[in-house]
Design a protein around this nucleic acid. Structure first.
Lengths: 140, 140
DNA sequence: TTATTTGCAAATCTTTTGCATGAGG
DNA sequence: CCTCATGCAAAAGATTTGCAAATAA
């Protein structure tokens, strides 16, 4: 048995066993305001005294992505994955070119643009990703 | 001396020596309608009988990026870089979830949106990246 | 008890780096 | 000739995989 069961139902609903590591990873992602790397997830668990192997972190994240519980991203020009909870509310990010911090941004200028592509190019649009680059208040 | 000198001026203007490999890499990128991987660049040169080491491909691409002659991208969830010529005309991509092909798309719904962020969040916006995901005509 | 999950070690894939040699201006 | 470009080999960083041991249900 384990202390943290906050995600028990969520896991069960998705046909996944309720384990300490899965709970802790979901918790780590929930706690972060921004997408975080595999390594950051790993370190966060260590800080919380949850022993885990890095390959297990990879496997759990991959599993959660496959169930659409979390989202996999990456910053332009950086070849490693970032993960965040899939909070169905539509989000994009602003990335500071100096400190590399990511800020969530909630407006989306996209919306009806998808329909245009549908008719004009014959694409079946299922999603999109918008990233805005620049300098944040501290860095500019 | 070498046969292909199409990019001689461009290189010189940017303080770079005019070499067979740099010319060939720019040519390979110019020939491709979509961003391509380091490996694809490498293979394309081989096909054209230009011997080159993979680390040189990396170095040249990095140099060209630093001079803003080419752009470095990556597809969501794939941890390797893609490169394309920087044709200053503003471009975004549609990526087919099935065949993974990328299609250039020229409309951009973004435009004056940047100003909103500037005033609302205090960000200094310098650029953005929009990717649209879905299924292309062949795959849907 | 049984299927699933995890740890561990090794493999794989992408990218970077140091140093010696080669080529452009 | 002198600086910059390239090849080569090795290292580094990120991710994946096979298999055996541990655990949830």
């Amino acid at each position: 048995m384990q202390k943290v069961d906050a995600y028990k139902g969520l896991l069960k609903n998705n046909g996944l066993k309720n384990t300490k590591r899965r709970n802790s990873i979901l918790e780590a992602l929930a706690k972060s305001a921004q997408p975080i790397t595999v390594d950051q997830v790993f370190l966060e668990l260590q800080r919380n005294d949850v022993s885990i192997n890095i390959s297990t972190v990879y496997r759990i994240l991959e599993t959660l992505v496959s169930k659409d519980l979390i989202l996999k991203t990456n910053i332009i020009g950086e070849n490693k994955s970032l993960f965040e909870l899939n909070q169905m509310d539509h989000k994009h990010h602003f990335i500071c070119m100096s400190c590399r911090q990511m800020f969530a941004v909630d407006d989306c200028p996209f919306e009806q643009y998808g329909e245009l592509l549908q008719s004009k190019m014959g694409f079946n649009v299922t999603g999109h990703k918008l990233e805005i680059y620049g300098y944040c208040q501290n860095c500019k």
